[in-house]
Design a protein around this nucleic acid. Structure first.
Lengths: 213, 213
DNA sequence: ACCTGAACACCGTTCAAGT
DNA sequence: ACCTGAACACCGTTCAAGT
């Protein structure tokens, strides 16, 4: 199994192809852009392209895996910040910004992730990791501040449920026009505040009596 | 513009084609099933099929529009039932059941809805109608029972955000295997209970003191 | 080692021709 | 009026041939 003579060439070619593909997918969608178009945009022949990506699907997979790294600080902020809720809001804002910036491309990725078996499995793995990071971050946050009557596991599941909803909504509004993120994030924060309110007046929790009024 | 000689034939042919397409899409996905396959399944030639559906996209659009009718009673139940929360849970359960029963098909519909401009617009119209019905139903429910400190509009947006998240999750788990709806719906109900808790111990609401313990 | 581009086996859609 | 199916203009992918 011969390794590449110039290992940086392979990496540069992959970048070149990925950039070309992202430009094309963003313009025309995954299924409407042909390999020929990507070849044209990347100034490479079909044969050369297939040397670096064995199929069109693999290109989308590579794009989907691209920006996993830059979310790490967001999780650290949830774990160590003053407010778990604000930390999660920042995570949501980050995601919404990414989605609005390149909604058509992300819509393609989501759609393809729902369609392709292999992509779907890769995505499930990634999602499980993300959930684990979120559980750890929420648990850490709640060790440092008053926590509601809920497990970090359920909290993480609820947060991810809402993040999924948010993503889908931003996609749908963003694929064919501008999206106003403000109200969406405001709704999201309001939901978090109610979901994770501490000291709820439940029957078997210590209750804070409403003193004033 | 000649009308059909036998108006029931057109309807029967559309059903025949739609049923064939749903079977094929469920088996192999939207983009992987060819028009030839649908023709084979429907026992019709390509030309005949194109007489009833001008494109492959129109077939998916027709499938997406198919089961809008049967959700009407669910909204009525929210408006008139004892508990708005239980009504919304029933709506969620209905949606989850539909999605789990034919996850691959619904995943195709969602994916295509994100990809295709015309489909996306039809979907947006449908969604706006749904939201209006939900707002009306929640407002009606809250006129008959204690309501939380929230507008029906925001409540409807939050419910739809969570329903979207739920749908996406069920799709992702269901496209390639069985999905256990129980825990998902339990999370969903728990979220609703917290989101729409009445008499929250906020500073300017009458507060229920925790008497026992 | 890396690349080219013609060729292959398809695809969605159309349309002249049948009944 | 309704249908057929060959034909058209593509598509993703491969592979012999070049450098």
């Amino acid at each position: 199994m011969a390794r590449s003579a110039d290992p940086t060439l392979a990496e540069r070619r992959r970048r070149q192809i990925l950039d070309a593909a992202m430009a094309c997918f963003g313009r025309r969608g995954f299924h409407r852009t042909s390999m020929q178009e990507i070849c044209g945009e990347a100034a490479l022949s079909a044969g050369a392209l297939y040397r670096y990506f064995p199929s069109k699907s693999d290109i989308i997979a590579a794009i989907a895996g691209e920006d996993r790294r830059d979310s790490e600080p967001l999780f650290a902020a949830i774990a160590n910040g003053d407010s778990m809720i604000e930390g999660v809001c920042a995570l949501a804002a980050h995601m919404v910004a990414k989605c609005t910036a390149k909604a058509p491309l992300f819509a393609e990725v989501i759609a393809e992730t729902l369609r392709d078996r292999e992509l779907s499995e890769r995505f499930a793995t990634h999602e499980a990791e993300t959930r684990a990071r979120l559980v750890a971050a929420i648990a850490a946050a709640w060790r440092r501040a008053p926590a509601p009557d809920m497990t970090p596991e359920r909290a993480a599941r609820l947060v991810m449920l809402m993040l999924d909803g948010l993503a889908l909504r931003v996609m749908r509004e963003g694929v064919h026009g501008a999206v106003d993120a403000g109200p969406l994030l405001e709704d999201f924060r309001e939901a978090l505040l109610r979901l994770f309110a501490t000291a709820a007046p439940g029957p078997r929790k210590r209750a804070l009596a409403g003193v004033e009024s």
